[in-house]
Every structure is written in structure tokens, then in C-alpha cells.
Design a protein around this nucleic acid. Structure first.
Length: 872
DNA sequence: CGGATCGAC
DNA sequence: CTATGTCGATCCG
């Protein structure tokens, strides 16, 4: 313990200073030496809240290291031996799969922002400058770096290091424009290159290189602006590379004849057949330059063109994989390039003495941890592979092994879809709840805008808070319905913020930063299930499906396309197709059929929505309602009446179906359920249940209104009552009417409720009633197969239920359909509603969920499924 | 899933 | 006075 502490303590200050980026300061003539820099920074830093927090963080890292060292001491030689074998085995496999066939290029613009600013304002050229603000710098030019002024350093400290420092505010638009220019060039060499931020990119030029081998010289020739040559050599203080063409290109127009054809047609290139350096110089003087066909030449050409076009220099690395290429581009920076030949030896030579900190992915903390193990270079990283495999996670030590063997990815394809979107702001202390809420709302508004720009909806909202002591906290909540609007996001964020404020009450939260993030985006598939609200679901109106009704496209085709790609055409899809067909046939005979009006309306406003549109009731402009089960148009525009009808209708068709099925020998209480009496009884129960439900809701709301934060005692009762009721009814009902009662009657009947859910008005109302420990599980269980679903994703769950139902139905059209359903539901399981209710609360933490609209969709979804099913 | 942390730009 | 903003990945509970 003591020994480890010592190791840690010695590097304590180092850790902080390293963060300031001083480890490789090269003191220039007018610069400062490392010691001086450290001293100044320390003086400016010591005692600040920031510093205190930094110390705390360092302590935490030290503790991690301590733990690791303890772990290390426990390792037996046996274990180490075993680990050695394992690591060696993997190393061998990796070695055998080494791929040197790709040529990967990493391009990195030199001090990008600063370079742009200098280009656009020549006055800054000779001065030390940094881009950013007094509180934070984004980058600095090389002149300023001699004073220890670095990126990620606050401006006021930089000023202390370098009093003459000019701080230029950020000009993102400009950088983006320049970045675009650069990217246009890069795209010519690899159309699917991978940009990293504004100033970096990876290219895979393997294919391009092959093509280029056969290119004639003129296709590899570029003109140089003459004035550039004239000025060349005067100012390239920082350009060690051989290709110093124009420090001043910005002042001239873009390179002439970028277009190759113009070169040959309009102004013949100074002809040259040799590629010696002398010849190159000759060509330079003749205002043109020809690049060869090697990778180096290509990269020189790229850098040349970038400089000609933007007036900015870039560094580059060429290597067989991305990791190496990245490290190469750093090797001769600025304005230089480096290549690792695609052979094992060259790779290993490069890797050998490389400080581990240089490898991308190994940062300050990992470096410190490895240092504690005596690992400073990549060879040491390799030598300690067995130890590392015991001390680090699998992904970590695998990565270490990759690194130490010089292996890396060559695949730049994964231009992955974004996983999250966020916005955050730093400000001077805000400590009143009121301001915090409005700030939160503002952030939500901004984020919502951004989200909607990309048409994204996410299910997880994260609130980030940093207090004035720089302590960061995040609070996340995953809701069932994906959110995207300001109101939706704020509804979730607000609650989290409230609990945070409450948690420190009566003290105020003293914040210096707040941020909101949305993640867990829906994919295209999920959007189809989730997009439609229950209201819209019943009222496709302008969204109804057109292709369904297009004469040329069969319904079958349509459904095949619409259904999952992962499994075969759904039983229901077939059913729907069949029904559509019969409806169409009906149409022919009876042109004035109700379905017709639906068709016409639908086709006027086509939409890509498919699954949901089918079998749903049409509530076009709220005047004519069509039952989703019998497809009869309802005279009454009253929703209550429609719901009652649907229930009756479902009841009728389902009972009829069940009656058919029940002709088989397996008769479980058939008589009870299929007699007219029981039908009536069921219907009555539905009605009764409905009433109870609405009473419950009212009660909940009232209590909720009375007490926003406290007095949760009243609520478990409500829950208990309703669930008891449910259990009771479960015992006495069959599968069919259980669905009816549990799901349909008590749930979807109340469209007003559904509407409220959608507007998130229910968040406060309903939360309290879920805050008891009455709920046991927190998982979705399929009501058909009764198997716990790993997913908590509703659309996936829906899919599963669909498949599950299909299985039962398709196998046999008789008792197999119902039996599994019945046995599972009556004996083992809770209602679908109850399963879903679990989603409202995390039983372990007691955290409330924030939205309940998806279950409502769910009920309707199942209902429609069953309705379709009943067409059998 | 939620929270913290790391790493990169 | 004055120490960022955004994103992905990973680890652990």
C-alpha cells in the first residue's frame, strides 16, 4: 500500500501539469522553459475551485491505481503463466491475421483554427495567437506554443504565460468553409473518406493508388501560382518538409487549372519525363509540378493541393492501418508527412520506442496507470501483455495487444449513425430553482430544434449538472415513448432537475453548467411502430396508406415489404392482405361501399406508414368513424360510442371465432364463455371496469394535484386496489375476454386519456400512483408464451408477440391457437396491461417512469392484431 | 439502465 | 473575474 501510494504521489502534480500539455514543450528563444511555465500555471491555478477538483480527480485515479497494484500483488506465478499462454496465443492469431495490404492516410491540418485566423489576418502572422476566449482556448499557433499556450487551456492563464498573446474569438463558420474546401480535395482520392472533426480525416487510398499507376503524367500535374513561388522561403519558419510552396497562397486566387482537362487543353504542362528532385525544382520554376504514383507522392499532392486551395498546411501519415496512420501524421508535424512501409518490420520499428501516450485511445489516465506498471513504451506494452490481461478488461488488454503489435482498423466505413445529441452550457453561478428550470427549458428547446433537424426521436434523456466546485453529475431517464419536442424533453428533464433540487434542499443547487442529452434513437423500423399516436392511429386521415390501394401493386406485395425483413411474412399481414382483397372484391360489386370512401381519402394523401394503417379505424376529420374490426362506418361521431361499438364488435367476432375453435375436444369452460349470457356478462364487466378505471384516474390526479412532492402514502392503495381487481377478473375470464377487459375496455376506450398521455400532461398526474413497491418485476413478458423478453423495447416486443401469436395460429387452426394463450394467461400470468405497467417504475430504485403513452399504443396494437386474427 | 469516467477534437 | 462543448465507448453496479 505504502509503496503504491508513493508511486502515485510522485506523479501527482505531474498529472495535472500534463493535462496542461507541457510535457513536450520545446522552449524557443522567446519562449519559456518548462519549469517557468509550470510555475506560472501553478500560481494561477492553486487554490481555485477548479484546482481543488483536479486534485480530487487525481486522488481518484490514484485510488484506481492503488487497487490495481493490490490486484497485481495477488497474482500468482501460476496465473501469470496461464495468462501468458493465452496472450501469446492471441498474439499469434493476431499476427497471422495481420493485414498490410491497405494504404491508409491520415490528414491533419496544422493548428487549424489558428492557421485560418492567421491566414485571414496577416497582422497576426508573426505574433503568438490563440483561438478561443478568456475562459477557454481551442488552439494556439506554434509561436504561442513556445510559451506553453496550448489547446484546452483557459485564456487568462495563457495570458499570464504569454502577455502578448492575441486571443482571437472562434469563427466556426469560417472553419467549416475551409474544412469543406479541404474535403472536396480529399473526396477525389477516397470518396468515402472519414472526416474527424473539422481538421482531420482518414482516407483509404488503396484503390486509388492502383488506378493511378496507369495515369499519364498530365493527370498528375498541377500548376503553381507564380507569386507563391516568389514569396516562398521567406516565412516558412515552421515548415521543415521539402514541399514548401506557398506560405501566402491565401492572398492569391485558387490554384489554376484544378481541372485536369484544362491543364492539357489550354496550357500544356511543362513537359518532364524524369522525377528527380532537380527535375521537380525545374518544374516548380516553370510553374507546374508533377506528382508521382507512389503513396508518398499522392499524399504530397494532396497536401500541395490543400495548401494551394486554402493557404493552409497539413500534416499527413501513411500506414497500413488507421492507428498507425494517425501516429504517423504526428511524426513530422507541422507541415510534414511520414510513411510506414507496409511490412512488419517497418511497423515494429516505428512502434518500438513509441511512448504509449502517443497512441490514440491512451489518454492521461491510462498512461498513468500503465506508468505505474512500469510501462512507458509500446514494446513494454507488449512485454507486459500477460500482466495486462489480468489487470484490465478484455477489451482493454486486447486493444493494448493490438497497439503493441501495430495492428489497427483499416475500415473507415462505419460512418455510424449518431447515437446521441446533446447541448450544454457553462455560465456564472445560477442558484435559484426558477432560473434553473427556465435554463433547462431553454436547453431542451435548443436540443429539440437540433433533433428535429435530423428527424430524431430518442428514448433516453440525460440531465448533466456541474456545480460551482466543478463536480459533475448526470441523471438519466429512459421513457417508453421517444421524445423530440421541447415539451417532451423538458417534461422528463424537469423532473430529474426537480429531484436534484429537492435532494439538496433547503440548500440551493449552485450550478455552473447544465446540459441535456437525448439518446436511444429509434431506428426506421421502430419509428413505424412508435410514430403513430393512438389518436392518429385511429384517424389516419391524411396518413392512410396509398400503395395499399394502388391497382398495380398487390396488397400482398405491399405487406411483404412492410413487414419485418427479419422473419417471414407475418400471419397477420397475410390476413390483412386477404381481407383487403375481399374488400376490393366487394368494391367491385358495390362501388358505394364505405371502404371506398376510405380508399379515396387514403390515396389522396399517401404515406409510407404501412403496418399501422392497416386494420385501424378511420376517424377522418372526426366526422365519419370506421370500426377497425368490422369496417362498418359508424354514424355516431362520439368516441365513447365508437369505443363501445368496437368492444362489442371485437367481442362478437372473437367469441365467434372461439366458438369455431372450441369444436375441438379441448373445452375449457367453453360453455361459460360462449353462451349468450356470458357474452353479455363480459360486456357488462367491460363497462364496469371502464367506469372503475376512470374513477381511479380521477383519484390519482386529484391526489397528485394536492401534493407534488410529498405524501406518497395515498398512492399504493390505488395501485393495490386496481391490481387486486385485475387479479380477480383474471381468474374468471377467458383469454378472449381478458384481452377485451384488461386491454381494450379499460384502456383504449378513453381516448381523452390517451390524448392527455400524448401531451405528457399525465406525467405529474400518474407518477405518484406508481411510486409504491407493489410491482415485482421490471420486464416485459410475452402474454402468449409467457417468456421474459430481454428487450424493453416496445416495438421489438410487439414484434415478438406478433411472431408468437403467428406460431400458435399457423401451426394448427384449432386448439393450438387458444390453448397456449389460455393456459398462460389464466394460470401464470398477469395481464398484458400489468406487464406493461412494470415499465412505469423501477422496483429497485423506485424511480418513476415518465410516460405511459406507448402502452396505450400497445393495447391498440394488440387489439388490432386480435381483430385481424379473428377474421380467420 | 444509469452513472461515472475516459478519450478525442 | 475567468477552466468548453459534443460525441462515442467502456466499466461497474
Amino acid at each position: 500500500m505504502d509503496s503504491t501510494k508513493k508511486i502515485v504521489n510522485t506523479s501527482d502534480d505531474d498529472g495535472f501539469l500534463l493535462r496542461m500539455g507541457l510535457n513536450d514543450n520545446k522552449a524557443g528563444m522567446q519562449g519559456l522553459d518548462k519549469e517557468k511555465i509550470n510555475k506560472i500555471i501553478m500560481e494561477a491555478t492553486k487554490g481555485s475551485r477548479f484546482y481543488e477538483n483536479e486534485l480530487k480527480k487525481d486522488q481518484q485515479v490514484n485510488q484506481r491505481i492503488e487497487k490495481m497494484m493490490q490486484l497485481k500483488d495477488k497474482i500468482t506465478s501460476q496465473q501469470l503463466l496461464k495468462a501468458q499462454l493465452q496472450a501469446d496465443k492471441l498474439a499469434l492469431e493476431l499476427e497471422q491475421s495481420r493485414d498490410l495490404s491497405c494504404t491508409i492516410v491520415h490528414i491533419d491540418m496544422d493548428a487549424f483554427y489558428a492557421a485560418v485566423e492567421m491566414r485571414d489576418n496577416p497582422e497576426l502572422k508573426e505574433k503568438p495567437i490563440a483561438v478561443g476566449s478568456m475562459s477557454m482556448l481551442s488552439t494556439s499557433n506554434y509561436h504561442a506554443r513556445r510559451f506553453g499556450v496550448r489547446a484546452a487551456m483557459p485564456g487568462f492563464i495563457a495570458k499570464k504565460l504569454c502577455p502578448h498573446l492575441t486571443i482571437v474569438p472562434l469563427n466556426f463558420k469560417k472553419y467549416e468553409e475551409v474544412s469543406k474546401e479541404v474535403r472536396e480535395i480529399l473526396a477525389e482520392y477516397d470518396p468515402s473518406f472519414m472526416p474527424i472533426g473539422l481538421d482531420e480525416a482518414y482516407l483509404n487510398i488503396t484503390e486509388y493508388l492502383e488506378e493511378r499507376q496507369n495515369w499519364p503524367e498530365d493527370k498528375r500535374s498541377y500548376f503553381i501560382k507564380r507569386e507563391n513561388i516568389a514569396k516562398n522561403g521567406k516565412q516558412d519558419v515552421t515548415a521543415p518538409d521539402e514541399l514548401k510552396l506557398n506560405e501566402d497562397a491565401h492572398s492569391s486566387s485558387p490554384i489554376l487549372f484544378e481541372d485536369n482537362t484544362s491543364i492539357t487543353e489550354e496550357q500544356p504542362v511543362a513537359t518532364s519525363h524524369l522525377y528527380t528532385e532537380e527535375q521537380r525544382d525545374q518544374e516548380l520554376l516553370l510553374n507546374s509540378v508533377v506528382f508521382g504514383t507512389s503513396a508518398e507522392e499522392v499524399v504530397k499532392e494532396i497536401r500541395f493541393r490543400i495548401e494551394q486551395k486554402t493557404g493552409l498546411t497539413a500534416s499527413a501519415g501513411i500506414a497500413p492501418n488507421m492507428m498507425l496512420a494517425k501516429m504517423c501524421s504526428d511524426h513530422n508535424k507541422p507541415n510534414g508527412q511520414y510513411r510506414i512501409s507496409p511490412d512488419r518490420q517497418s511497423v515494429m520499428d516505428f512502434i518500438k520506442d513509441l511512448p504509449i501516450r502517443k497512441v490514440p485511445g491512451i489518454g492521461k489516465v491510462t498512461e498513468k496507470m500503465l506508468k505505474a506498471l512500469g510501462i512507458l513504451t509500446c514494446t513494454e506494452l507488449y512485454q507486459q501483455r500477460a500482466l495486462l490481461s489480468l489487470l484490465f478488461s478484455e477489451t482493454s488488454w486486447h486493444n493494448f495487444l493490438d497497439v503493441s503489435l501495430g495492428l489497427g482498423s483499416t475500415d473507415l466505413e462505419k460512418y455510424g449513425e449518431r447515437k446521441s445529441m446533446s447541448t450544454e452550457r457553462t455560465f456564472s453561478e445560477i442558484n435559484t430553482a426558477e432560473e434553473q428550470y427556465s435554463l433547462c427549458q431553454e436547453l431542451c428547446r435548443d436540443l429539440a430544434q437540433d433533433l428535429q433537424k435530423e428527424r430524431l426521436k430518442g428514448k433516453t434523456v440525460t440531465l448533466k449538472l456541474k456545480n460551482v466546485n466543478f463536480e459533475v453529475k448526470t441523471r438519466a431517464s429512459t421513457v417508453l415513448a421517444a421524445v423530440s419536442t421541447e415539451e417532451e424533453i423538458f417534461a422528463v428533464a424537469k423532473d430529474m432537475l426537480r429531484t436534484e433540487i429537492d435532494s439538496v434542499a433547503p440548500h440551493p443547487l449552485r450550478l455552473r453548467l447544465m446540459g441535456i442529452r437525448v439518446s436511444g434513437f429509434l431506428n426506421e423500423e421502430e419509428k413505424k411502430y412508435q410514430q403513430r399516436s393512438i389518436i392518429n392511429f385511429l384517424k389516419p386521415g391524411k396518413q392512410a396508406n396509398a400503395s395499399l390501394l394502388q391497382p398495380g401493386k398487390s396488397s400482398h406485395e405491399h405487406f411483404t415489404k412492410a413487414s419485418e425483413t427479419s422473419h417471414k411474412e407475418s400471419f397477420f399481414d397475410k390476413k390483412r392482405a386477404a381481407r383487403q382483397q375481399s374488400n376490393q372484391e366487394l368494391l367491385i360489386n358495390k362501388p358505394a361501399n364505405k371502404q371506398n370512401s376510405h380508399d379515396i381519402k387514403s390515396s389522396v394523401n399517401p404515406v409510407d406508414e404501412t403496418n399501422d394503417a392497416i386494420g385501424s379505424a378511420n376517424l377522418n376529420d372526426c366526422h365519419s368513424l370506421t370500426c377497425p374490426v368490422c369496417f362498418e362506418e359508424q354514424r355516431d361521431s362520439d368516441l365513447e360510442a365508437l369505443n363501445r361499438h368496437i368492444d362489442k364488435c371485437l367481442n362478437g367476432t372473437l367469441v365467434k371465432d372461439n366458438a369455431e375453435i372450441s369444436t375441438s375436444e379441448n373445452s375449457w369452460e367453453n360453455a361459460q364463455h360462449f353462451s349468450p349470457d356470458s357474452k353479455k356478462k363480459t360486456f357488462e364487466m367491460c363497462q364496469k371496469n371502464k367506469m372503475n378505471k376512470s374513477v381511479d384516474t380521477v383519484q390519482s390526479r386529484q391526489v397528485a394535484d394536492n401534493s407534488t412532492s410529498s405524501s406518497t402514502e395515498a398512492f399504493p392503495k390505488v395501485v393495490a386496489n386496481t391490481s387486486k381487481e385485475r387479479e380477480h377478473s383474471l381468474l374468471s375470464e377467458t383469454a378472449s375476454n381478458m384481452y377485451l377487459e384488461q386491454n381494450f375496455s379499460s384502456k383504449i376506450i378513453s381516448l381523452e386519456n390517451a390524448e392527455r398521455f400524448e401531451k405528457s400532461e399525465c406525467t405529474q398526474e400518474t407518477q405518484p400512483s406508481y411510486s409504491s413497491g407493489a410491482i415485482r418485476d421490471n420486464v416485459l413478458v410475452c402474454p402468449i408464451c409467457n417468456v421474459e423478453q430481454k428487450t424493453t423495447d416496445l416495438s421489438l416486443f410487439n414484434r415478438h408477440v406478433d411472431v408468437c401469436l403467428n406460431k400458435g395460429i399457423i401451426q394448427e387452426l384449432t386448439e393450438q391457437i387458444v390453448c397456449p394463450v389460455k393456459s398462460q394467461i389464466t394460470e401464470n400470468s398477469k395481464s398484458v396491461g400489468e406487464y406493461l405497467r412494470h415499465q412505469y417504475m423501477n422496483p429497485t430504485t423506485g424511480t418513476k417512469r415518465y410516460d405511459r403513452s406507448p402502452p396505450v399504443y400497445m393495447y391498440l396494437y394488440l387489439k388490432v392484431k386480435l381483430a385481424n386474427c379473428s377474421v380467420l
